[in-house]
């Protein structure tokens, strides 16, 4: 049900463009103003969300330690990148998290069953699929975003052209097929299918979990449609996009409806981003269980709101128990 809601919503978005551009000819609105608003909301929203997180202090260093601590015993080897004590090693830990999805790589799958004698067995199987498709999904997304920068730059910087040519290395079809197009669609489809088909994952999913996947798939498919089927006029589109980034917006004649669909869906993604779980992009950097060294025993840290609550003092304790303490021969501070 939740998946269907999200799917319907994405279809509704398509209808909005078909009507708005196809019938009502609101080209300026869909080609210029909505993208501008979306970008502004995205940037300001993103910055605000990160600022809002950063505003709350980190009172305690609570890294989840993923291996042996730093020990003064020479033969006990510290797992520096999963249980760092220095800033350098913490940065390395974070790099593994962000670039390689290190924690997700640990993933296992638990199963419970009975052995032939009826005895219980709990088994843990390696489960790297989520990691693999997660990595594929994110890196193709990233590559596609970088590739798109050729539409917003003039002259196009060399590294963008390089990535572009690497991505079309296989040289199949004309125009040449981008590997990341295939990878993104495949990976997003896997993530979607996993959500729909695995009963546990379906049970914990919200409508808000299906929506970004449908939306991104729709963006990817509309992009692929433009490139390989509609064969849109890229020169005209670049005229439009350059107009946007140079703040001289203008609508060239030769831009087809498929581009408006693509652009509108991207605008929705940008608009939706700061209000949604997609903010994990920013949040992963601020997670106190990962981005701090395990060093509270080594170095002093200040908790800015430390309430300094007093303990029940020894003097009060002795007042409660002085007599029996003396009787038992325990030393006391105030022997009356």
């Amino acid at each position: 049900m939740k998946a269907l809601y999200s799917l319907f919503f994405v279809f509704a978005l398509l209808l909005v463009v078909l009507f708005g551009v196809g019938a009502a000819h609101l080209n300026m609105l869909f080609g210029v103003w909505i993208p501008y608003v979306a970008m502004a909301v995205f940037l300001l929203g993103f910055i605000y969300r990160v600022y809002d997180w950063a505003k709350s202090p980190v009172p305690f260093r609570i890294p989840t330690t993923g291996g042996q601590q730093w020990s003064v015993l020479p033969e006990v080897k510290q797992n520096r990148w999963d249980n760092p004590t220095t800033v350098r090693d913490t940065v390395i830990r974070m790099a593994f998290e962000v670039l390689l999805f290190r924690s997700l790589f640990r993933n296992t799958k638990s199963e419970v069953y009975k052995n032939e004698n009826g005895g219980p067995v709990v088994a843990y199987a390696s489960a790297k699929w989520l990691w693999l498709f997660g990595i594929l999904f994110h890196y193709s997304f990233l590559t596609i975003v970088i590739r798109h920068m050729r539409l917003f730059t003039e002259p196009v910087p060399g590294f963008i052209t390089l990535i572009d040519s690497l991505d079309s290395l296989l040289q199949i079809a004309a125009p040449t097929l981008y590997l990341t197009d295939v990878a993104l669609v495949a990976a997003a489809t896997f993530l979607l299918m996993r959500r729909i088909l695995a009963p546990q994952i379906r049970y914990l999913s919200l409508a808000a979990d299906y929506f970004p996947l449908f939306l991104i798939l729709a963006i990817a498919i509309s992009g692929i449609y433009m490139r390989y089927i509609a064969k849109v006029d890229v020169i005209a589109i670049k005229e439009l996009t350059m107009g946007l980034v140079t703040f001289h917006p203008h609508i060239p004649a030769n831009v087809g409806i498929s581009f408006y669909i693509h652009l509108f869906l991207v605008s929705i993604l940008l608009l939706y981003f700061p209000f949604s779980k997609l903010m994990h992009l920013g949040g992963v950097f601020l997670s106190p269980t990962r981005n701090l060294p395990n060093d509270s025993r080594v170095r002093h840290h200040e908790n800015p709101w430390n309430p300094k609550i007093k303990c029940h003092s020894y003097a009060d304790y002795e007042d409660d128990f002085r007599e029996p303490m003396i009787e038992a021969g325990l030393p006391v501070d105030k022997a009356e």
């Binding site: 999913s205 779980k277 903010m279 601020l286 997670s287």
Partner: peptide
């Protein structure tokens, strides 16, 4: 901050 971030970023 832990509480705030953990409330916001879970992707389920």
């Amino acid at each position: 901050r832990s509480f705030k971030v953990f409330m916001d970023i879970c992707v389920r």
